[in-house]
Simulated assay, not measured.
Amino acid sequence: MSRYKILENRPLTADVYNLVLEGEGVESLLPGQFVQVEIPGFYLRRPISLCDVQGDRIRLIYKILGQGTRALTKINSGDLDLLVGLGNGFFPEEAPHTPLLVGGGVGIPPLFYLAKDLIQRGHKPEVFLGFNKKEEIFLDEEFRDLGLTVHLATMDGSQGLEGTALDLLDRFQEEDRTDPDSPPYVYTCGPRPMLRALTAWMADKSIRGQVSMEERMACGFGACMGCTIQTKSGPRRVCKNGPVFPAEEVLW
């Protein structure tokens, strides 16, 4: 447990906030890992994925989902108690030259940190982002600022393709726009229905990849067993054995 100074806590959309913290011991944090944030007045910590790490600063993007995260939006100064370095993160060394990053809603932030890591390794990801409507879109311009192509979808058709991030990816594959020398490989994070549909689509097309699971976590380090999911290798704890798993391993 460590204290991290609040540098910024501001809204990106009506219910999504950008939280920047400063403190020690963050340089070695990996894309796909998460932190557990203690919110004053609440017993359980809240898990939030890493969006970015720069020097001694970490960036978290979170959504108002209940009383705890709503209370977090009101804290604009001082510091917060965090457990950091939790989870196993993504495995970028398995990526081909052009990995496909597929995110939905608040599952998108960890893909931003992953994109930066992949670029440093010489890859150039294609990015597919899904939202409910254009007013909820965030991070798209920052992905573009990395020099990446961003494909957008909204459920109501108010911006980009009308549909989901999976619809974007399916159209991309149908148009045969993947690199012929680089087999498709997907990194994804988002709501459970999206992940279920996407992994089924991947299995049907024999496409490999990694999925970052979103589950309720109480302890964050494997003690309470509350975030257990079923995989082909048996029960696995999302916080301890994940949150990233091979896509083909998860049983829905």
Rank of each mutant, 00 (worst) to 15 (best):
L7E: 06
E8Y: 11
E8S: 14
N9G: 09
T13G: 08
T13R: 09
A14E: 15
A14R: 15
A14G: 11
D15T: 14
D15E: 14
V16A: 03
Y17V: 00
L21Q: 05
E24P: 11
G25R: 07
V26A: 10
E27W: 11
L29V: 01
L29H: 04
L29M: 09
L30N: 11
P31I: 04
G32R: 09
Q33E: 15
Q33V: 14
F34S: 03
Q36Y: 00
V37S: 09
P40N: 04
P40F: 03
P40Q: 01
Y43C: 09
R45I: 07
R46K: 15
P47M: 06
I48Q: 03
I48T: 03
S49F: 05
C51F: 11
C51L: 13
D52P: 02
Q54C: 07
G55Y: 01
G55Q: 02
D56A: 11
D56G: 05
L60F: 02
L60C: 04
L60V: 04
L60P: 00
Y62I: 02
Y62S: 02
Y62D: 00
K63I: 09
K63D: 02
L65R: 12
G66H: 00
Q67V: 10
Q67K: 15
Q67C: 00
Q67M: 13
T69Q: 04
T69E: 05
T69G: 03
R70N: 11
R70F: 10
K74D: 08
I75Q: 00
N76W: 03
D81R: 13
D81A: 11
V84G: 07
G85P: 07
L86Q: 12
G87C: 06
G87F: 02
N88T: 13
N88L: 10
F90Q: 06
F91H: 15
F91R: 15
A95L: 04
P96K: 01
P96H: 00
H97N: 12
T98F: 00
P99M: 07
L100Y: 07
G103L: 01
G103F: 01
G104H: 08
G105K: 06
G105A: 03
G105M: 04
G107Q: 03
G107K: 01
I108L: 04
I108G: 07
P109K: 01
P110H: 08
P110D: 09
L114F: 01
K116R: 13
I119R: 12
I119W: 00
I119Q: 07
Q120S: 14
Q120Y: 01
G122W: 10
P125E: 05
V127Y: 07
L129M: 14
G130I: 08
G130Q: 11
F131Q: 10
F131N: 08
K133S: 15
E136I: 08
F138L: 08
F138C: 03
D140K: 14
D140Q: 13
D140G: 05
D140I: 00
L146Y: 06
L146M: 10
G147I: 11
G147S: 12
V150I: 02
V150A: 10
V150S: 08
H151F: 10
L152F: 02
A153H: 02
